[in-house]
Amino acid sequence: MSAAIEKYQIHAYIDGELAPPENKEIEQLMETDESLRNEIIQFSALKRQIKDSYQLVNIPSYQPVVDREKAGWQLPKAAVAALFIGVLIGYLSVNMPFNQAFLSAADQHQMAEQKYLIHLDSADPKKLAAALDQTEKLLVNGGPGIKVDFITNYEGVGLFDVNNSNRAQLEGLLNRFDNLTLYACKRALQRAMEKDARLQLLPQVKHDKPALDQVVERLSEGWKYIKI
């Protein structure tokens, strides 16, 4: 093969990354240099093979990051919400000073936004403790409308094991706050069970879907996301 051509130039030629004069130079050399010609044919075939092979990969069905049905309803919902807010403000402005009415609506909006999603994917004791503290702080300091979802995946699912040392603290929170919901990732749980069949979740823990689906669903609903 011609010594004038570097190997990277062959690949750049195949990928269409060379300038026209360099292309021409290689094409001229190919006419006389059989080994160069063979190299280019082989690597072009390999490039095609890679593309074709990965086209044949079985692709799992798409899981939308936002539920299509819900997304489709968002515009009508927004219109209804706008109408409702308008009527509410109109009604309140007749019965009380405007500033007071506006503040009440703003307060309600803020209250409605008190939804938090705490996500833990580790079995690190420090992170476990931090996650539990954060949950407790939110629930204690939040208003009556606050909602907290605590979701675990990967090694974090062990936190919800009945034999976990944090069980008492977790059950204490569940007893005190009915606005706390626990989720364990379905997939992570399956993997953890394969590794340790003794794993047994607290009965209050929901585990019917993958964590990422739950996180995406909550984010699309406007929940605040806290990753520990």
């Binding site: 990051v65 936002v66 993958p210 990422l212 996180v215 995406v216 984010l219």
Partner: peptide, 9 residues
């Protein structure tokens, strides 16, 4: 999934 989630954020 993680990529799409991050993209959404």
């Amino acid at each position: 999934q993680e990529t799409m989630l991050k993209a959404l954020e």
